[in-house]
Each structure stands twice: as C-alpha cells, then as structure tokens.
Amino acid sequence: MMTQLSRFYASSIGKKAVVAVTGAGLLAFVFAHMTGNLLIYLGPDAINAYGRFLHELGHGTAIWFARLGLLAMFGLHIVATVQLTRQNRAARPRGYALDGCQRTTSAARFMIVSGLTVLAFVIYHLMHFTLGVGNDYRTAEEYFTMLDGERVHNIHQMVVDGFSVWPVSVFYILAMFLLCWHLMHGFSSVFQTLGAQTHGTRRIVRYAGYGFAAVILIGNTSIPLAVLFGLVS
C-alpha cells in the first residue's frame, strides 16, 4: 500500500491529482473564508460572534483540526507544484526563438508566480490578523469587547484598524488580484486533472472558474475598500 502510494505520487498524473485535490480543498476554504469575512457588513456583533463560534466549536478543537488540515493541504500543494514546475522546466531546457503559443492563458503560464505570491501573502496575513504582529494600534485590552455578557475578541475593530492604513489595504487588494489570477486557471484545472469534465462541459467549467475568481475578488477586496472609504468603521 505504501509503495503503491509513493508510486502514485511519483507519477506525473498522480502528482497532478494531489495538486488538484488540495487545490479544490483550498478553493472551498477560500470561498468559506470570504463568506465569513463578509459578515463585517452586518456590524461588529455579527463578525465577533462568528469568531467566537469558530473558536468554541468542538470545545476549541475544531479550529485546530481545521488549521492542521489547511496546513497539510497548503504544504502538499506547494511541494507538488514546485516539483512539477521544476520537472517541466527540465523537460524543455531550451525554448523557441519565437513564442508560438495559441491557446494558453497568462494565468496558466504564471501559476507558480501567482502561487508563490499568494504564499507570501498568506504568511503576511497570518502574522497580521491571526498573530496580530504590528497590529497594535490600541492597547491589547481594547481588542476585546463584550458580546452577550461574554468577553470576546473584537475582530471588527482589528479589521478596521488594520485596513485604515492604506499601504496595508493596497497590498491586500494586490494579493487578491494575484490569487484570483491563480484561480482563473486553477478552478478549471481541477476538473481537467481529475478527469471530471467532458467535451460538452469544458467551456462551462472554464467560465464557472472565471465567475468564481470574480466573486472572490469582489467579495474580498470590497472590505479594505469599504474601510478606506469609511463605509465600515
């Protein structure tokens, strides 16, 4: 069983399947994360209660399972894509004098660039909002608030303070463009790689991917923009 698993991973299609399955998991996470973020528009209590819900789910164990699962998916995705990219470059040591590509997209060609930018962004984002590094615009105590008589993290305040610094917002917005560029190719790739599309559905899957990327882009970038323009405060 172990030998077969490593043989599967050693094959081109096996590695691609790992990229696709982890990529699909990350797609689901990105969507869920965005819907959670949008609670900011319902006022401080909604998003703070959502934060408390996530932290208390399963007596605080659920969030750790989720974090470990995400870390594993992210790690596998990155290791497999970096290996694939290196193999692909080695397979064509010298390129052509003229670029005769007819069908591919820039999104498909720069997957490793957009992906690694997303990696840099994720590290920054975790330090910024999960660990709170450099996000001390107030005393630690002021990032707690009362909700239904309970002391909870004031996520709303943290987000508003964080995005009020315009260079931070600009970086977030740029990162979302890169992520969505990645998804423009990534979403439909999952279906092709896993053999889950047909001649008749290939186009639909491609445009569904563009739609998905647009939803994520609009949903997520709206938040720093709303803070910068004072619509959320």
Binding site: K15, Q102, R103, S189
Partner: peptide, 16 residues
C-alpha cells in the same frame, strides 16, 4: 514519465 517528458498543466497547446 521515465522518458523525461514534462507534466500537463492544462495549457491546451497540444490540441491547437
């Protein structure tokens, strides 16, 4: 794979 070909990343250049 052993022959050293690359991996498909769904560019669709081949069919074109």
């Amino acid at each position: 794979d052993a022959e050293g070909f690359g991996n498909c990343t769904n560019h669709y250049e081949c069919e074109a």
